[in-house]
Lab assay of single mutants.
Amino acid sequence: KELVLALYDYQEKSPREVTMKKGDILTLLNSTNKDWWKVEVNGRQGFVPAAYVKKL
Rank of each mutant, 00 (worst) to 15 (best):
K1D: 09
K1H: 14
K1A: 13
K1P: 15
K1W: 15
K1R: 14
K1F: 15
K1L: 15
K1S: 11
E2D: 13
E2W: 15
E2K: 10
E2H: 12
E2R: 12
L3K: 11
L3F: 15
L3W: 14
L3N: 06
L3A: 07
L3S: 08
L3V: 10
V4A: 13
V4F: 08
V4Q: 01
V4G: 13
V4D: 00
V4S: 03
L5E: 13
L5W: 08
L5F: 10
L5M: 14
L5A: 06
L5Y: 15
L5G: 03
L5D: 01
L5K: 08
A6L: 02
A6S: 06
L7A: 04
L7W: 04
L7R: 05
L7C: 07
L7Q: 05
L7I: 10
L7H: 03
Y8F: 13
Y8G: 06
Y8I: 11
Y8A: 12
Y8M: 12
Y8H: 12
D9F: 05
D9Q: 04
D9W: 04
D9I: 02
D9P: 06
D9G: 06
Y10I: 01
Y10R: 03
Y10L: 02
Y10G: 00
Y10Q: 01
Y10N: 01
Y10P: 01
Y10S: 01
Y10A: 01
Q11Y: 15
Q11F: 14
Q11I: 15
E12I: 07
E12R: 15
E12L: 09
E12N: 08
E12D: 05
E12P: 14
K13E: 08
K13A: 12
K13H: 10
K13I: 08
K13W: 05
S14K: 08
S14H: 13
S14L: 09
S14C: 09
S14A: 09
S14Q: 08
P15W: 11
P15I: 11
P15C: 08
P15M: 10
P15F: 10
P15D: 13
R16E: 13
R16I: 13
R16W: 15
R16Y: 15
R16S: 12
E17R: 05
E17H: 07
E17K: 05
E17S: 07
E17A: 06
E17G: 14
E17P: 05
E17Y: 06
V18Y: 04
V18F: 13
V18C: 09
V18Q: 03
V18W: 06
V18D: 00
V18S: 02
V18M: 11
T19L: 03
T19N: 07
T19C: 06
T19Y: 04
T19R: 06
T19Q: 05
M20S: 01
M20A: 02
M20Y: 02
M20V: 11
K21F: 13
K21R: 13
K21T: 09
K21P: 01
K22E: 07
K22G: 05
K22L: 06
K22M: 09
K22S: 08
K22C: 07
K22I: 07
G23Q: 02
G23C: 08
G23S: 03
G23F: 05
G23W: 06
G23V: 01
G23H: 05
G23D: 06
G23T: 02
D24A: 08
D24W: 14
D24G: 04
D24I: 05
D24T: 08
I25K: 05
I25A: 03
I25L: 11
I25N: 03
I25Y: 06
L26F: 07
L26W: 03
L26Q: 01
L26P: 02
L26S: 02
L26T: 01
L26Y: 12
L26E: 00
T27C: 09
T27E: 14
T27I: 15
T27L: 14
T27W: 14
T27P: 15
T27Q: 12
T27M: 11
T27F: 13
L28W: 02
L28N: 01
L28D: 00
L28I: 05
L28C: 07
L28S: 02
L28G: 01
L28Q: 01
L28R: 01
L28H: 01
L29T: 05
L29V: 12
L29F: 04
L29H: 06
L29Y: 05
L29K: 05
L29S: 03
L29E: 03
L29R: 04
N30I: 09
N30V: 09
N30S: 13
N30T: 08
N30G: 07
S31E: 13
T32E: 14
T32Q: 12
T32A: 13
T32C: 14
N33Y: 09
N33L: 10
N33C: 10
N33T: 07
N33R: 10
K34Q: 14
K34D: 12
K34C: 11
K34H: 12
K34I: 10
K34G: 11
D35W: 15
D35I: 15
D35R: 14
D35T: 15
D35E: 14
D35K: 14
D35P: 03
D35Q: 13
D35A: 14
D35H: 15
W36S: 03
W36E: 04
W36N: 02
W36F: 07
W36L: 04
W36R: 03
W36V: 03
W37V: 08
W37N: 02
W37Q: 01
W37Y: 08
W37G: 00
W37I: 05
W37T: 03
W37F: 08
W37S: 03
K38A: 09
K38V: 14
K38R: 12
K38I: 15
K38Q: 13
K38P: 02
K38F: 15
V39H: 00
V39K: 00
V39R: 00
V39N: 00
V39E: 00
V39I: 08
V39T: 01
V39F: 01
E40T: 06
E40M: 09
E40Y: 08
E40W: 07
E40G: 06
V41A: 13
V41Y: 12
V41M: 13
V41K: 15
V41E: 04
V41Q: 12
N42H: 11
N42D: 13
N42W: 09
N42Q: 11
N42I: 06
N42C: 10
G43Y: 06
G43C: 08
G43Q: 06
G43W: 05
G43H: 07
G43K: 06
G43T: 05
R44S: 06
R44H: 08
R44I: 08
R44V: 09
R44A: 07
R44C: 06
R44N: 07
R44L: 08
R44Y: 06
Q45G: 07
Q45D: 08
Q45V: 14
Q45R: 12
Q45W: 08
G46F: 07
G46C: 04
G46Q: 02
G46N: 01
G46K: 02
G46W: 03
F47V: 07
V48G: 00
V48K: 00
V48R: 00
V48D: 00
V48W: 00
P49F: 02
P49N: 02
P49K: 04
P49G: 01
P49V: 02
P49S: 02
P49E: 01
P49W: 03
P49H: 02
P49I: 02
P49D: 02
A50P: 04
A50M: 05
A50G: 04
A50R: 09
A50W: 02
A50H: 03
A50Q: 06
A50N: 03
A50Y: 02
A51L: 12
A51R: 14
A51T: 12
Y52L: 12
Y52H: 07
Y52E: 02
Y52C: 09
Y52F: 14
Y52G: 06
Y52T: 07
V53S: 01
V53H: 00
V53W: 01
V53G: 01
V53N: 00
V53I: 10
V53A: 03
K54M: 15
K54Q: 14
K54E: 12
K54P: 01
K54N: 06
K54A: 13
K55A: 09
K55F: 10
K55C: 09
K55E: 07
K55D: 04
L56K: 04
L56F: 11
L56T: 07
L56A: 05
L56E: 04
